[in-house]
Design a protein around this nucleic acid. Structure first.
Lengths: 354, 354
DNA sequence: CTGAAAGCGCTAACAG
DNA sequence: CTGTTAGCGCTTTCAG
């Protein structure tokens, strides 16, 4: 906005060739005499020429940018994902436009429209919920490749990248059962969120596979620190025999941890807590949380790589579905149930104030 | 890439008016007959027209995007900042392109160039270190407004947004001294980082202002969890009279906390720890950390608002400097020094293995 | 290998 | 109010 921009025309004039020659030469599309190419390069450098990707984009229909909509970067889970996506993009000469939609459908719609208007070459978002039929239609028909993050591959027109949530739930259940826990509860978020549902399913399967075949208890609440906290307080007040908690995400696990602490219970001696996701915090908190880890960074990477790959082949876009394995990361928040703890808990429940 | 894009031309043809009329009508620049405007709108809607911001940008030299370079979004400090920036941008019809530079000068340079090529209308970055004279020149001469985050206002050609680090250090020192601590050490990061330097300065001033006028001890290390951890171990081994630690950022505070724990010291009973920044983690960790809070989100917001304001006025860009106040957030990691603890510490130091 | 010319999709100054 | 015309900066046939 300060000094006049130097354009192809300027450097064409300055080096006495046609503007198209300069264009070809600089973008190296095809054969240019070495001497004129050098001259052009020299002039360009000396004039401090920097091509406009927007003009180029206008002519070529390519923007070299990818749209990324998450609910909130401040959520460490998404921060990891975003970083993975940004790195993959960057490595391929792309950049990402980052949007935060919270859980606001209107915001999400606005962002999708802005991103399409900016002609992003791909779109990553963690769900397509909130977009009505028309808009989904528009996305699939005239839009760029779309990858849904952390959503089960139901929307057959979009690609998906997910963790194997079902297996995660299963591993969690198995692990706790193997340590001798017989009374485990699973605290989780909204019933209609696919990834939560899958974790529930896996957990249930694990419980069903055990000899005693007890029907697992699932408690639904808010998928946040406070949600985990509240649910844990509820549990402490009601089911004094519970010895282990499987939390559907880390935030809930932290909340549960806090509730136990406040009730005077020691984790893991008096209560085992198993988390899901594995944000950095898990290792800093006391006790370090044992969790089911999902590779967030890699998932972000994979998502943009899927887009990039789709862009390569000019063949009609065919949705792809990639699922990442999850792993158990054992730290210090789970142990074997013990009788003393049960007694202690009973006392506390009597005392506990809701 | 699938269906042919519908352009102004299409809707002009379909509604029997000139393309320029359509343009005006749709972008509402000025007077259009209501009936034709409605007809155009109808046709546009029916054809599912969506204007290309890149073509528009090519014609108008506006991109409605702002570049944002941080070292790593996964750092919760930056995540907050980014969110603030994104929100402010979004509210004004802009989006942000997010880049991560780590501490790699080459990466940063590449990102700056890409962003300029994409004609961002403003640039936020947390330092201009690594850019050589020429590039800084280019930025100020032909580039968009630049705001430096968390850097003291030295580079007179760029705007800055900072927290009042000096005051933060001062408050920290005062607070600890007021609680009766006489032997406080400040653990901090690289000596040449302006914000750290300011915190040191403030802390030193607070110490100087006290009656006993003891010369404050500053320990330099890596500004990370492990850095804080190592420094704390050093302190525990050397200065057994220390009763309080002022850490230059939260990560270091967490590290110090961990080191104390491992040495069998209880915080705050045996050691007070005061942090800086206030990431969410501070409230989750045990004990909850008392810290000097800087308004990260608001700083991000302010930075893009400065850019937006600069964009409004076509007057030559004059750098602006905005400083945010910091506040003490009292939680549970600081208390009064006590004699018993000192005795306990002495024992531990003898035992401590480095 | 290079120039001329047309085009990308949209805006903007200028007549009428 | 609307059409004509000329751009924006870069790419891309197509001749030569």
């Amino acid at each position: 906005l300060r000094a006049p921009r130097v354009t192809l025309k300027d450097i064409a004039r300055a080096s006495g060739v046609d503007i198209s020659t300069v264009s070809r030469s600089l973008s190296g599309s095809y054969g240019i005499n070495k001497v004129t190419r050098d001259r052009i390069a020299a002039v360009a450098a000396q004039l401090n020429y920097h091509p406009s990707r927007v003009s180029r984009g206008n002519a070529t229909e390519r923007s070299f940018t990818i749209g990324l909509i998450v609910s909130d970067v401040r959520n460490p889970f998404f921060a990891d994902l975003v970083r993975g996506a940004a790195d993959a993009a960057s490595a391929a000469g792309y950049e990402v436009i980052l949007c935060n939609s919270d859980v606001d459908a209107a915001k999400k719609i606005r962002h999708v429209q802005s991103l399409l208007a900016k002609r992003v070459e791909g779109l990553l978002m963690n769900s397509v919920i909130g977009l009505d039929r028309t808009e989904q239609e528009r996305l699939t028909v005239s839009g760029p490749p779309v990858v849904l993050l952390n959503r089960p591959p139901t929307h057959s027109n979009f690609s998906t990248v997910t963790a194997n949530n079902e297996e995660g739930g299963y591993i969690a259940g198995k692990y706790l059962i193997a340590r001798g826990h017989q009374d485990i509860e699973h605290i989780t978020g909204a019933r209609d969120r696919g990834n939560f549902r899958d974790r529930v399913r896996g957990f249930t399967r694990a419980c069903a596979a055990t000899e005693e075949s007890r029907t697992p208890v699932i408690l639904y609440g808010d998928d946040s620190f406070i949600g985990g906290y509240d649910l844990m307080r509820l549990i402490l007040a009601r089911h004094s025999e519970i010895t282990a908690i499987f939390a559907a995400n880390d935030a809930m696990a932290f909340g549960a941890l806090r509730a136990c602490e406040e009730a005077g219970l020691q984790v893991p001696r008096d209560m085992s807590i198993l988390g899901f996701d594995n944000v950095d915090l898990c290792a800093v908190v006391r006790p370090p949380l044992t969790i089911i880890h999902q590779p967030k960074y890699e998932m972000g990477r994979a998502a943009v790589e899927m887009i990039l790959r789709a862009l390569e082949k000019k063949a009609p876009y065919v949705p792809e579905h990639r699922q990442f394995g999850v792993t158990l990361v054992e730290r210090e928040s789970c142990s074997f149930p013990n009788a003393d703890s049960l007694a202690r808990k009973r006392v506390h429940v009597d005392v506990a104030s809701m």
